[in-house]
Simulated scan of single mutants.
Amino acid sequence: MSTPLADTTNPDLDLLYAVNGLAERSPAWLDHTVSWIGEYGILLGLALLGLIGWLQARRRPDAPVAVAGLLWAPIAVAVAELANLPISAIVDRPRPFVDHAGLEVLVEGKAGTYSFVSDHSTMSMGIAVALFLVNRRLGWIAGVLALLQGFCRMYMGVHYPTDVIGGFALATAVVLLLAPIAMAVLVPLCHAIGRTALAPLIRAPQGGSGGSGGRRTGGRRRGGGSRGAVRADEQPPESDLAA
């Protein structure tokens, strides 16, 4: 299929044709791989990063705050997706292949849905920004995956570049603007859960030979052990959301 000349007065369309043109020139196996990654793979990778972040957060001195920040990630994504419902209806933008011929569309069933903003881009960036506030290393990795998600959506021919940028902006705004309100609720909730039988979800269990056991035995063990535990608990929170 020959790609028609893009409208040089429309950078949004120019970039879409440039990225999607790679799909036309690529082997079928690569197109299938990118389609799977753009539709499912990146979201699964972000979920795995969230799991790793949770396992690490449980071992931090500020575990309830860190876990609350991770819990905010899926909630923020859900809020952003709900906010996108009226936005999509108001903008009422068809998928790019509906109005422009010559695009290589790699997934089916998208014709009847809105193009602006990209749901996949919104979800990916929402997780990335929320994760960055808790664990910067994992957040950077998630941010790269979010950018790759945007590229894949254009490669697949289902979104304009501005759909992707709009999704990134929406997710970032929701995560950052609503984080103080969310954390005001989630941090006390995580502290409360930490005092129940579900405490291992919030803080990793400590070794059986330390902690309170050391305080009940000899004086030297009791004195050094308890003071060390207090100092660990009193370390300043590592999470940016704790401020």
Rank of each mutant, 00 (worst) to 15 (best):
D92Y: 05
D92K: 04
P94W: 11
P94E: 00
P96L: 02
F97G: 14
V98N: 10
V98T: 14
V98R: 09
D99M: 02
A101M: 06
L103N: 05
V105R: 15
L106W: 05
L106S: 00
E108H: 08
E108W: 07
E108V: 15
G109Y: 05
K110H: 06
K110R: 14
G112S: 08
G112A: 15
G112F: 01
F116L: 03
V117M: 07
D119I: 08
D119R: 10
M123G: 03
S124I: 09
G126L: 03
A128Y: 04
A128G: 01
A128I: 14
V129C: 04
A130P: 00
L131T: 07
N135C: 10
R136P: 14
R136K: 05
W140T: 03
I141Q: 08
G143E: 04
V144R: 09
A146L: 00
Q149D: 03
G150C: 03
R153C: 03
R153E: 03
R153G: 09
M156L: 12
M156E: 06
M156A: 09
M156R: 02
V158D: 06
V158R: 04
V158G: 03
Y160V: 14
P161C: 02
T162I: 12
T162V: 12
T162W: 05
D163I: 00
V164G: 01
L170H: 13
T172K: 12
T172R: 02
A173R: 07
V174H: 07
V174N: 13
V174Q: 05
V175G: 03
V175N: 09
L176C: 10
A179T: 04
A179Q: 09
P180M: 06
I181R: 06
A182H: 09
V185A: 07
V187K: 13
V187Q: 07
P188V: 01
C190W: 06
A192T: 07
A192V: 04
A192H: 02
I193H: 12
I193A: 04
T196E: 02
T196P: 13
A197C: 05
L198P: 06
P200S: 11
L201M: 13
I202Y: 08
I202P: 00
I202M: 02
R203Q: 11
R203A: 04
R203E: 01
A204S: 15
S209C: 14
G211W: 05
T217R: 02
G219L: 09
R220P: 09
R220G: 04
R222M: 01
G223K: 15
G223V: 15
R227L: 15
R227K: 11
A229P: 11
V230T: 13
E234S: 06
E234L: 14
Q235H: 11
P236F: 14
